[in-house]
Amino acid sequence: MSPGLKNRSSLNEQRRLAARKQHLFLRARMVQAIRQFFIENDYLEVETPQLIPAPSPEVHIEAIRAGNQFLHTSPEICMKQMLGAGYTKIFQISKCFRQGERGNLHLPEFTLLEWYRTGIDYNHLMKECEALILWVSRNLDMGEKLRYQGMDIDLKAPWERISVSEAFFRYASLSLEMALKKGTFDELMVNEIEPHLGVTKPTFLCDYPVSLAALARLKPGNPDFAERFEIFVGGLELANGFSELTDPQEQRARFERDLKQRCNSGKQVYPMAETFLKSLEHMPEAAGIALGIDRLAMIFANRSKIDHVVSFTPEEL
């Protein structure tokens, strides 16, 4: 490379980072506000290993191999083991890694906030989400209303709640049952449903079909659905939470089902997370959630691409 070219590319690099400066400042303040929220609500901040022997066997999440172990795709398994050992309120902000995920809303290395609390179910957890986001917004001096990509979004509680089957009925060209049967659940969700969610208020999309909830508890009295929800703001998927499944037998059966499906579709097969399954024997009722920090920064910074709220994307290294 000629010295001229090198200078030009380092100049572009400086310009790119300078243009992102205000978003990165906002992001840093946002993360500080999140920490403060959890500390004031008596949560313990924890750090669990990013290098783990057995990732959660999600059918559609690919872990990155590191030596003879894996980089975690979320801290879920380790954090739940802590619940089984007597920790009652814990949170963590950590880097997570998922192979092949790259788009306007995806980075293969991204930041997740996860928090878990014993003695509550997903209804209570949804209330905590409302309080957290409102707290962060006020701490960023942005009040209770948010402007995101031309939408005016009211953050005040209560947020909208809609079940997955209701959302299919209202927005999609097929019913939930038909979509599951034809295997087009994901396409319809992305193309027809998500754009309508969280447009005037954040939306909780609740009660997923049991086949789409690997680690969530079933709804009492309605075993076809699990107590899982996602949060949407301005059409953007922000978080995924649920009442935790605490039955080790049921959890083992679902893991075996998912590992088999991974195996059948030719994906890398993970070892069974035995230590985790053992810890479930002591796990109390609890609820937990993973929230994308990069996505939340996109929303507060009013950006449409995840690239704008991180210092470096993989392509920029």
Binding site: V59, I61, E101, G103, A214
Partner: peptide, 10 residues
């Protein structure tokens, strides 16, 4: 590239 929740990559 898009990927809903815990769904498959599209």
């Amino acid at each position: 590239f898009s990927k809903p929740g815990k769904g498959q990559s599209l």
